[in-house]
Amino acid sequence: MGYPSAMMLRTDNLTLARGGVPVLTGLSLALAPGQALILRGPNGAGKTTLLRSIAGLQPPLAGRIEGAQDRIAYAAHADGLKAMLSVTENLTFWARVFGHTDITPALDAFDLHGLADRLAGTLSAGQKRRLGLARLLVTGRPVWVLDEPTVSLDTGAVALFAEALRAHLRQGGSALIATHIDLRIEAQVLDITPFRATSATRAGASDEAFL
């Protein structure tokens, strides 16, 4: 199975704000099918803001994002799991929202078969995270946008994740990942610290709708 369209994800001269304050400016990046790009930068550098913008959750102050519309599978700190639904029900729901029905490959990839009938509320933090990452597989989306995907995973689960990521890249998918650990995959690394917005860009920029 491969992904049909071979579009690049591209951002052009982005300026992004968080809470009305610009945090990143002049950021351009390109991500081809089959590639992974690791974002680095200290806390507060704007990694999450960049990922949220690319996922379409907040508009950029300036610049353009191309090739992201309807191709993104986004995973952040919150996994969007319902405590009172079982693992299977949670995954099936997301699969159906994205127009798919088969969740077996996702259960396989993250070793969730033994937990399939457990309520998500009774899982450990690492197990929840695995379920949250398994959600990426059922979306069938070619571009994964991941914010610290390995938080609370043990080394075995990190290896499972890296393997799933490699398979995704082999099929022509791509991934944009903010992480601090070494996933042992071939990936470019982009340090976003140099794009930090200065006080000059901050003057006069506001995304407040009613001000």
Binding site: A55, L57, A78, D79, G80, L81, K82, V97, G99
Partner: peptide, 16 residues
């Protein structure tokens, strides 16, 4: 509830 567990963020990026 959907906001707290991140479901809303994910729904916004969904095809629906």
């Amino acid at each position: 509830l959907d906001f707290e567990d991140g479901t809303l963020d994910l729904l916004v990026t969904a095809p629906l």
